[in-house]
């Protein structure tokens, strides 16, 4: 028996919007600690990890660990039917092959039930070790989204380099080049406008902008984004979900190939 009641239903809607373009089908894992998901895109280049801790729900009941395979597009279709102020309750019975989403309007005068078929998904679960990152950049999420959008109109890849000067995003395309530097800035009125750079070692990595742009769909979930970089690891782009958990995107870097020796 599983029953999760989320007062802030819009949060689940936003989570779906953030991941449904990246992943088609995924297993949602429920345990006593929370509601989580880990899934890769079809080309195994990007991974999304979601955690919504049990404390964040108004009511959380999960008798035993279960995993529910869902088609995210279908789930998104159903959640779109919920109002932004609705309370969403997720229910599943043991042994059932469906999940029920219940939407209650804030005034309790309208209650909708949506039942969705579950799927058997044979998916790979990757172990992600805790790592010390060479550089961690915290910046306003809207700013990051803007940078990714702007750069993708010029090139396909972004080089993110962190130095003492700040964090630099650069790209190169047929029409020319672009460089955007963001400096550390903590002297702002609101903490969510700050840019904070922690650097142990300078680092520079190349990523496909297509994926970065897809990650920024999570911008409505959090005003800040954290980008963690290490030279031999995938980048982590993390959006905190207030008092509940996080949504983290991992992206494998582009690798410099050694067969370019034909170039002068």
């Amino acid at each position: 028996m599983l029953e999760l009641r989320l007062v802030q239903g819009s949060l689940l809607k936003k989570v779906m919007e953030a991941i449904k373009d990246l992943v088609n089908d995924a297993n949602f894992d429920c345990s006593a600690t929370g509601f989580s998901l880990q899934a890769m895109d079809s080309s195994h280049v990007a991974l999304v990890a979601l955690l919504l801790r049990s404390e964040g729900f108004e009511h959380y009941r999960c008798d035993r660990n279960i995993s529910m395979g869902m088609n995210l597009n279908n789930m998104s279709k159903m959640l779109k039917c919920a109002g932004n102020d609705d309370i969403i309750t997720l229910k599943a019975d043991d042994g059932s092959d469906t999940v029920t989403f219940m939407f209650e309007s804030p005034t309790q005068d309208k209650i909708s039930d949506f039942e969705m078929k579950l799927m058997d998904i044979d998916s790979e679960h990757l172990g992600i070790p805790e790592a010390e990152y060479h550089a961690i950049v915290r910046m306003p999420s809207a700013e990051f989204a803007r940078i990714c959008k702007d750069l993708s109109s010029i090139g396909d890849t972004v080089v993110i380099s962190v130095t003492k000067e700040g964090v630099k995003f650069s790209t190169r395309g047929d029409i020319g080049t672009a460089n955007i530097v963001c400096r550390q800035n903590t002297t702002v009125d609101k903490p969510e406008e700050a840019t904070i750079i922690e650097m142990n070692e300078p680092v520079s990595l190349t990523f496909a902008l297509r994926y970065m742009n897809s990650f920024t769909k999570a911008t409505p979930l959090s005003s800040m984004v954290t980008i963690s970089l290490s030279s031999e690891l995938p980048v982590v782009v993390e959006y905190k979900i207030a008092e509940m958990g996080y949504i983290r995107f991992y992206l494998a870097p582009k690798i410099e190939e050694d067969e370019d020796e034909t170039k002068p």
Binding site: L2, H44, V45, I66, D94, D97, H125, L126, A252
Partner: peptide, 21 residues
């Protein structure tokens, strides 16, 4: 083709939670 795959960084592990059914 210079794009790396995630599996070259993270290794697969067994998932503990059983499917609902």
């Amino acid at each position: 083709s210079s794009q790396g795959r995630l599996e070259s960084f993270f290794k697969p592990v067994a998932n503990s939670s059983a499917p609902v059914k």
